[in-house]
Amino acid sequence: MKKIVFSVMLMAFFTANVQAAFTFTPQENNKVGLYLGGQIWQSEVSGFFGKKNTLSGFNLKKTQQSNYFIGVKHPFSMLPNLRISSTRLDNVGKTNSTQRFSIDNDSTVIYNNVDTDVDISYVDYTLYYPLFDNGLFSFDLGLTARDFDGAVTETDTTTTVMTSHDGGLDAEEHPEHGHIVTETTTTIATDKIKTNDIEPMLYVATNINLPLRGLSVFGQGDFLLIADHSLYDYQVGLSYDLVDSSVVAFNVTLGYRILKMEFEDVDNLYTELEFKGVFFGVMTHF
């Protein structure tokens, strides 16, 4: 049902007559522009995930994520611009516990280790309009279809060590009266939850040129439109033009990005995760 609602919204957005909204949006040189870029994102992650009533933190690590995008801008004000972005969002973690039991001279130790591999990567398909652009300040508004395609895999390794003393109650203090028998068993169980869902999001972006030539501050965000879950992803930063000619432009970016997702039963996956950290990026356009 959600995909149908989003398809209707996307169609309405694409076909709406919005000519009046673009009085102040001159397209650069009236040419079609191709934009290519990417980011390296050093993200810290906090929160929980798993199946219902079995959420765990798994001590996820600080990892390096990546993002790549391609975009097309054009001078046809009736049609939206296009942006496709792919973000890798994966991590690994581990939890362990030890339980000990003792009855008379017999003891049991249970070692439980859970390794997890989290992959919540996605591709964004964005259609947007430049609502305002006067050369100093710009503001874009659009719709994003965030297509998740990944999996959460848990590997549970349980090792049970049972120790018994054969030969009488005093065998532990007097080994010559008996001997110690140790039995070890190990079981491994793997559980995999696939994520394959499309979330509709509102896309906004802005750029403000600063007095120093070639330097600007920017912001960009995607925010969930349908309130089944909580999902937002935004970034702010600085951009500097290393090359800016009529033929090609190349710039570098530095900023901070925060992504939070609270899902309830997305393909049986529940999450309360937040990724945040500094990123470095590059972009070129022709």
Rank of each mutant, 00 (worst) to 15 (best):
F6D: 10
M9T: 05
M9A: 13
L10T: 06
L10M: 10
F13N: 08
F13Q: 07
N17E: 13
N17R: 02
V18R: 09
V18I: 06
Q19H: 09
Q19F: 00
A20C: 03
A21S: 06
A21F: 15
T23G: 09
F24H: 09
P26V: 03
K31G: 00
G33A: 11
L34D: 02
G37S: 05
G38W: 06
Q39Y: 11
Q39M: 03
W41E: 08
Q42L: 07
S43K: 07
S46F: 04
S46Q: 09
F48S: 13
G50P: 09
T54V: 04
K62G: 11
K62Y: 06
Q64F: 07
Y68H: 03
P75W: 09
L79V: 15
L82W: 09
L89W: 09
L89S: 08
G93F: 03
K94D: 05
T95K: 10
S97Y: 06
F101K: 06
I103V: 13
I103T: 11
D104H: 08
N105L: 08
N112E: 06
N113V: 14
N113D: 14
V114W: 05
D115E: 11
T116E: 04
T116Y: 02
D117Q: 05
D117E: 09
D119F: 00
D119H: 12
S121F: 04
Y122Q: 04
F132R: 01
N134K: 03
G142V: 04
G142P: 02
G142C: 05
R146H: 01
D147R: 09
F148L: 01
D149P: 00
D149W: 00
A151I: 10
V152I: 15
V152K: 06
V152F: 06
V152N: 10
E154H: 03
T157R: 12
T158I: 13
M162S: 14
T163A: 05
G167K: 08
E172P: 12
P175H: 12
E176Q: 11
E176V: 11
E176Y: 15
H179E: 12
V181F: 00
T187R: 11
K192N: 13
V204F: 04
A205P: 01
T206A: 12
N207R: 13
N209R: 09
L210Y: 07
L210C: 07
R213K: 10
F218R: 04
F218V: 03
G219R: 07
G219V: 05
D222K: 13
A227E: 14
D228S: 14
H229E: 12
D233S: 00
D233Y: 00
Q235W: 03
Q235A: 14
G237H: 06
L238S: 09
Y240H: 11
D241I: 00
T253D: 08
L254G: 15
G255E: 01
R257C: 02
I258Q: 14
M261V: 10
L269V: 15
T271I: 13
E272G: 15
E272C: 03
F275S: 15
K276A: 14
F279D: 07
F280W: 13
F280E: 08
M283W: 03
H285G: 13
F286E: 07
